[in-house]
Amino acid sequence: MIEYMSKNTSVITKYTLAHFSLTISAILISLILWIPIGVYMTRNKKVANFIFATSNILYCIPSIAMFAILITIPFLGLGRKSAIIALVLYSMMPMTRSVYTGIKNVDKSLIEAVKGMGMNARNIFWEVELPMAVPSIFSGFRIMTIMITSTATLATYIGEKNLGRLISQGLSRSNMEMVATGAILVSIITLLLDFILSKIEDKLSWYNTNAGGE
């Protein structure tokens, strides 16, 4: 396997970079889309129920099926657009939910106190609700990142040239070294990301442990 890796360094690097660029695009779009929607859900119960239902259904669709459905839609077809959309749709559940619960779980007495001090709704959102929701939002972000990184592997079947390709081509060529390289690389990246993100998550949770003397 080491021999395979050293012989194919440039291809492996190219696939890894492609994997990251797909992952990062999907993550960025998800954040821009789902955080504001998650916030809006806390203000409107009907929207919240609709998004919860939709995101749960989407989350239950197997990824291969999701990719397959998307490529049949005109304008999307095979390739990156479909891959990104699929990943963004999967992120809807963990992201909107973590934003929603993060804000909804802010201690009511805090809101009462700052409202009584004359904070308006905007002050309350930026100075209290959002900062207090950061740990929850971040744990949603961690789940999403891990899920996108691993699910992106399957996008190889709709034309993405990423680490998944090592696995799929290795399988069709019965090249076990190639399969192992792809599988191990994806696993290491995912585990490493999870490790780093969980460390950050621990650091973030400190200030949200509720008031109480020591």
């Binding site: 201690d107 007495s109 805090l110 009462e112 106190a113 700052v114 009584g116 001090m117 100075e127 209290v128 900062p131 207090m132 200030y207 949200n208 442990t209 509720n210 008031a211």
Partner: peptide, 11 residues
Amino acid sequence: YVIQDIGLLPN
């Protein structure tokens, strides 16, 4: 305004 729960912002 001072309440029993105090409501100090933990952050």
